[in-house]
Each structure stands twice: as structure tokens, then as C-alpha cells.
Design a protein around this nucleic acid. Structure first.
Length: 289
DNA sequence: ACTAACCTGTAA
DNA sequence: TTACAGGTTAGT
């Protein structure tokens, strides 16, 4: 579900609510969504630790706790992190007993007179993962985290990053390249289509066919669009909600995503649809070359 | 580089 | 009943 702008929105929410708070109690209701690294590192190791900061790399949230403990959270398709004090009473009650609520975190906030605050992890499809890792063991963590390319909004990301990856994967469609988290981290299916539309590039073009100017334009659109979406709290196309369970407003700005068969806002031609690397891709035959 | 698999819910 | 969904990954 969430891509970079949605994950960043949640990060900003949770930092403002929970930075400096102490995690006093933890309930893992669905053990299969958790991985400890080393494997005997239990989630309960976090009890009594203080949340120092929350970082983000691509679509991963990185919670830094005292004692050198890192909690990595990936929401995949339908994961939500909900800060209960920000929810209406009826929603709070519903989520507390919902069968898709998998983890309950109790924090105490010294800033608010030791007030208790509940954070919960909710995930209908259960694809999301929580990983607890010791800082010193992060480099040996299995899975994709250590293979991520630069974050799309980091200053280490520029057009030569994409061009360099394209040189190693010349036949890869440019749409697949944008979705490949080893090339650049944070872009998903919505923003890949939106960026290609604004850059006027067809999604099925082989990576090797793009000119330097096209890589530059595409990179510029990635940064512009992701920033605009963050400013609007992300895209709530279906399931996405921020930590207060509120929708983002970027869906109203979407030009092509989910609009197959509808008229292009720029030229009026019917938008086309292709399956690329197993992902639905919408584009305009007239505007994108 | 494509496909199936992981899950559940919703819409056609 | 079937297809499909903001993601990733293991196996062709």
C-alpha cells in the first residue's frame, strides 16, 4: 500500500507523538509477522527502552531505541501504524479488538506527565514485517534491506544513479527499473506511473533506450512528485491512512494511475494499460513516447 | 525478466 | 465466482 510519501507521512506523525517516549509494554498477537536478528532476539527486548528517533529508508521505517536496538517496519500492502490517542473513541475500541491488529505497543511519555499512549500495528493481508535487529548486526540482516539503493529524496540520489543501474539492466523496462528498490528506494506502482507520465516516457521502454536528458527529466519528476505528495499527506487510493487514521489528499492529483480507459487530462486520448513485470501500468500513447 | 506465492477483502 | 489490489521475494 504505502510508498515513500505515505511512509514519510507516518514517520512525521509518529516522531511528533512518540520521540523520547519509553516503551513499557508490548504484545505480539501474531508472531509470524515478526523476525528477530539474531533470530533469538525477542521483541520483548524493547520493553523499558526509549524511542530516540524514527528514520526512513525507502519504504522502511527505522525506529531507533536506546541500547542499540533498531525496529524495522515495512507495511507492504495493507500495514497501518495507528496512534490511538489521535483516533476517535469509537475507532479506538474497534481497532483494539479487530482480528487484524497484530502488535500493541504501550508508551509512556515523560513530556506529558508520564501519560500512557498506545500504538498498534494493523495489517489485513499480513504481508508487512517487523524486524528487530541489534545495530551492530544490521549489515548481516538477510532480505532486501541491505540491498536498497539510495532513498529517492536523499541528496545521494541523482540521474546518474538511474543511468548506472540501467547500464547493468539494459533490457529492463523503465517502469520495472523505477520499481526496483535496488535502483532507487521508495517508488511504488502509483508514483512510477505518475512520474513516467510527467516525464513523457512510455513505461515499456527498455532502460538502455533512454537519453541522458530523459533520465534527468525523470529524476526531476520523481523528486517533485514525491515532495508534492508528502505535502498533501500521501495518496489514500484504497487502504492507506496516516497514524491518526486519516486519508491523504494526493489521490485528487493523480494523472494516470487507475485511470485506464479514461481520457488523458492533457490531450483527451483514452489512456492505455499494460502489464509490465506483473504490475498494471497506465500511460498515454499520445503524451508518452 | 517473468510467475507464483504470501494473505484477505472488495468489486465486477 | 473470479479478478485484482500502494509490495517483496523465491524459484524458474
Amino acid at each position: 500500500m504505502p510508498e515513500l510519501p505515505e511512509v514519510e507521512t507516518i514517520r512525521l506523525d509518529l516522531e511528533s507523538y512518540l520521540r523520547g517516549a519509553t516503551l513499557t509494554n508490548l504484545q505480539l498477537l501474531s508472531p509470524d509477522i515478526f523476525l528477530g536478528w539474531p533470530t533469538d532476539l525477542a521483541l520483548s527486548s524493547l520493553e523499558g527502552k526509549t524511542l530516540l528517533s524514527i528514520d526512513r529508508l525507502g519504504k522502511y521505517l527505522i525506529f531507533h531505541f536506546s541500547g542499540g536496538l533498531l525496529l524495522l517496519v515495512h507495511l507492504r500492502m495493507t500495514g497501518k501504524l495507528l496512534y490511538l490517542p489521535a483516533l476517535p473513541e469509537t475507532e479506538r475500541t474497534r481497532y483494539l479488538k479487530d482480528k487484524h491488529t497484530h502488535v500493541l505497543f504501550t508508551f509512556t511519555k515523560p513530556s506529558a506527565g508520564e501519560e500512557e499512549a498506545l500504538l498498534l500495528y494493523h495489517d489485513v493481508r499480513r504481508f508487512g514485517r517487523l524486524t528487530l535487529v541489534l545495530e551492530e548486526d544490521l549489515a548481516t540482516l538477510p532480505g532486501g534491506f541491505n540491498e536498497l539503493g539510495p532513498d529517492a529524496l536523499a541528496d545521494t540520489f541523482n540521474w546518474t544513479v538511474l543511468q548506472g543501474f540501467a547500464n547493468k539492466h539494459q533490457k529492463m523496462p523503465v517502469k520495472s527499473l523505477l520499481l526496483d528498490q535496488r535502483a532507487v528506494a521508495g517508488i511504488g506502482n502509483i508514483y512510477a506511473d505518475e512520474c513516467l507520465f510527467q516525464a513523457k516516457i512510455r513505461p515499456d521502454r527498455p532502460a538502455s533506450s533512454l537519453t541522458e536528458l530523459e533520465w534527468q527529466t525523470l529524476t526531476q519528476e520523481v523528486v517533485t512528485i514525491l515532495r508534492q505528495s508528502i505535502a498533501l499527506g500521501g495518496t489514500s487510493f484504497r487502504d492507506y491512512r496516516n497514524a491518526s487514521n486519516e486519508q491523504g489528499q494526493y489521490a485528487a492529483k493523480l494523472q494516470v494511475y487507475s485511470r485506464a480507459g479514461a481520457a488523458c487530462f492533457t490531450c483527451g486520448q483514452t489512456l492505455s494499460s499494460l502489464m509490465i513485470g506483473g504490475r498494471r501500468s497506465i500511460y498515454c500513447e499520445h503524451c508518452q513516447k
